[in-house]
Amino acid sequence: MKRYIPVALFALAAFVTPYSVNRVFLHTGIERKMGTVQKIFYFHVPLAWIMMALAVTCGIAAMIQLRRQSRLAEATSIAAGELVLITGLGVLITGPIWGHATWGRAWTWDARQVSTGLLWLIFAAFVLLRRYGAGGSDRLAAALAIFGAIDVPIIYYAVKIWKTTHPTTDVVGSLPPQMWNALWPCLIALVAMSIGLLLVRIRQEQGAMALDDAWIAFDERGAGKRGEVGDA
């Protein structure tokens, strides 16, 4: 039963994505100031929300991992951390593409851009630590994830204050409700996609952990046998 949840989510995404694209491009007006390029908004903004949610998920899972020594929580934090990297990359690439068309410059040191970039760096450090850290660094990585999740608002606030010394650019003003409504199908599609990938990755990580344990048990048993033979 559990196996089919990701499949169902992917199927949902596969249905909703064409619908959302249809709705965004054919049934929603073109924004007056920015023109067609504003269509990036419909996938860029939900992706940014998903990234934040995944960062917080990663932090909470890491907290549970530290408190309860839960394998599931550990796998969740790993999976969420990786997906933060993926979605963050999406946000960080589509943002400048949009900015390039709207403001004429890809990187404008907008507070959101900078804070997203910094957050992405923290989770890149998390993934690096998970991958290349020595034994015992899983707990350290968990601490890093907790720090990262708590840093989310602090970074945003810090960059906002830091920004007061820089010229500000008006990003999205107020959009008509029609455009907000077209956002929801895109959000559903992306959320279904991300949760599906998250679940797959969690299962995979759990499998990897179990496999590691099995290998170690096997090796230890083998070593024990050899030891007995040697003694005799």
Binding site: L66, R67, R68, Q69, E74, R130, G133, A134, G135, G136, S137, D138, R139, A208, M209, D212, D213, W215, I216, D219
Partner: peptide, 16 residues
């Protein structure tokens, strides 16, 4: 944390 595990998964993988 609460109870000490034998080793983290990263060390498991590494040792293997």
């Amino acid at each position: 944390g609460a109870r000490k595990p034998a080793a983290g998964p990263s060390s498991r993988t590494r040792s293997r």
